[in-house]
Nucleic acid binder design. Structure first.
Length: 548
DNA sequence: AACCATTTCAACCGCCTTACA
DNA sequence: CTGTAAGGCGGTTGAAATGGT
């Protein structure tokens, strides 16, 4: 409950304890012009006084409460108490499923605008909603579930489409954008601005804590308690995948968005992992796409878009939230979006993943890689690192080959920017975490052994229901397609993207990429996602570059 | 029953915006 | 225009409650 904050907290407590029944001995207060203000839990007596005061004087002018009522509480505290507990028409108790659904939808639209969300939930307070959401986040993180059900994603997408068709950013988008500007998600906002510009909606945009230092994920995962839980390399890969997913979500939104748009709702549905309307066969669902969206989710909840550790040989320590694909069914088996109850149910029995098939051939996905490659090239050229060096990529040395140098550039830039970067540590760590792969001198042809994932706590996570070793067996090869490296190794990538890569990065690098993609059948095992050059070029680079 | 881990939630803090002198 | 106070908001904290072993 309330903290038993004592007077010592501020060190301003008056020595003379005010002799008042309202000033109990356990809870001190803070100085307020010599007046001692109580902190900590409210007593019923205080509540009564506050209620009485409000009855007489109405809400507002909270600082006057203390003066007029003898309540030794600061105005803020009074306001909070009234708003959250004492005001009439407050609805107490658990959220109804309807409310939960509404919260999800509202959060998808608004982000962490609790007060605004509360306005849509009569009788509920922002604090309540916030707590609920944070709890939900944690649950979903643990369950490895996306934060938003596909329905919500789809709805947001459709709304966005409406907005787009009616001319650029609609009011809602703008509103969201503004609110995002107002909070600490500037970086993602930059990205999403571009995405929105292409008509892509990522309902969870406001929640990109994995990138934003102010986000809830960083709060949890970036903080000490999670350090052991989310090793740096895991972070890196997760983020990279998330970043990839982020762009992949907008996949078609880059170059082929028009194409994407024309694909109708089915495509959208598939993109969001919804059951394919015209294809009841669950195997036609697109785990990739869904992973994409989930990856975007993951931006907010720490989920990864990849359903497996990036390297089969390495069981990176991934929190249970790392394998959202495993829960595809939980959202995509549609009807009403499962809320907490369903999440719990999911935890009990995660759905099978093998029911999903890759959608690697979807042109949507090339948008992601195009974008990443574009970034890679841009960054590469910015640092005068010629991609020609990559021709010697069979023995990549740190900072040598374009791929590696891109990585290092990224890192360097981030380290340089870091002091002013809104990303703060997360940005730095993100790239510093990338570094070992290239900096360690490991060749792209020689995917670093598991142990070379410097800084990575290689650890199995048996508790991860979504990713248990036996699950892996059950899932079979299908799972591989949910992996970014599998994407790279896919025929689509090998044949289709090669040209794009060549055009963007030059044939040498492209050859390298293709080699990576098609080279070893063991790429599944050996081609760690991190070893892919594009994976080292998270879109956040662009964020930083673009964001003032 | 005891212990530990996790979850819940009330309350606080700091920042920002707005109103007003 | 500037400074200040009040209100509002989002993030964070930590004790209590709850659940699991």
């Amino acid at each position: 409950m309330s903290r038993t904050t004592n007077e010592s907290e501020d060190g301003v407590l008056s020595k003379d304890q005010i002799d008042s029944p309202l000033m109990d001995e356990s809870n001190g207060g803070s100085g307020n012009g010599g007046m001692v203000l109580k902190k900590g839990p409210w007593t019923s007596a205080e509540d009564a006084i506050l209620v009485e005061y409000v009855k007489k004087h109405g809400e507002g002018n909270w600082n006057a409460v203390q003066k007029h009522s003898g309540l030794f509480r600061c105005g803020k505290s009074c306001r909070l108490r009234w708003a959250n507990h004492l005001r009439p028409n407050l609805k107490k108790g658990a959220f109804t499923p309807e409310e939960e659904r509404l919260i999800v939808e509202l959060h998808a639209k608004m982000g962490n605008k609790w007060a605004r969300m509360a306005a849509h939930l009569p009788g509920r307070t922002d604090n309540e909603i916030k707590n609920y959401w944070n709890t939900r986040i944690k649950r979903r993180q643990r369950a490895g579930l996306p934060l938003y059900p596909p329905e919500v994603c789809l709805q947001a997408f459709q709304e966005s489409q409406q907005g787009q068709s009616s001319g650029g950013n609609n009011g809602a988008d703008r509103e969201q954008h503004d609110s995002m500007q107002a909070n600490s998600f500037e970086i993602p906002d930059v990205v999403f601005d571009s995405l929105k510009g292409n008509g892509c909606v990522l309902p969870y945009v406001p929640d990109l804590p994995d990138i934003s230092p102010g986000g809830m994920l960083m709060k949890g995962l970036g903080s000490a308690p999670y350090c052991g839980f989310m090793p740096p390399t895991m972070h890196r890969q997760k983020r990279l995948r998330e970043s990839t997913a982020l762009f992949s979500t907008s996949g078609g939104s880059f170059n082929q968005f028009d194409q994407f748009q024309s694909d109708t709702c089915d495509e959208v549905a598939r993109t969001f992992g919804l059951p394919f309307p015209h294809d009841p066969d669950p195997t036609t669902r697109s785990p990739l796409s869904f992973g994409v969206i989930q990856g975007s989710h993951s931006l907010s909840n720490g989920n990864s878009s990849a359903s497996k550790p990036t390297s089969g040989a390495v069981k990176l320590e991934l929190p249970s939230l790392q394998y959202p694909e495993t829960d595809l069914g939980s959202w995509s088996t549609s009807p009403p979006p499962p809320l907490l109850e369903s999440i719990d149910a999911f935890i009990q029995s995660p759905p099978q993943v093998g029911t999903f098939e890759p959608d690697c051939t979807s042109p949507r996905n090339s948008g992601l890689l195009d974008a990443l490659l574009h970034e890679a090239k841009a960054l590469s050229s910015a640092k005068n690192h010629s991609s020609e060096k990559s021709s010697n990529s069979s023995s990549v040395t740190p900072g040598d080959v374009a791929i590696g140098s891109n990585l290092n550039i990224c890192e360097t830039e981030w380290e340089e920017r870091d002091p002013i970067s809104p990303l703060g540590h997360s940005a730095t760590s993100m790239f510093s975490e990338c570094t070992p792969i290239s900096a360690s001198g490991s060749s792209l042809d020689e995917p670093p052994p598991a142990e070379t994932f410097t800084g990575c706590n290689v650890k199995s996570e048996p508790v991860d229901q979504a990713w248990a070793p036996d699950k892996e067996k059950e899932m079979g090869p299908l799972m591989d397609y949910t992996r970014p490296d599998a994407i790279l190794a896919s025929e689509w990538f090998g044949n289709g993207m090669h040209e794009s890569i060549a055009s963007l990065l030059g044939d040498d690098l492209a050859a390298e990429c293709k080699h990576l993609a098609s080279g070893s059948p063991t790429s599944d095992q050996g081609l760690g996602f991190s070893s892919c050059p594009w994976n080292t070029m998270p879109p956040v680079c662009q964020m930083s570059a673009q964001h003032p």
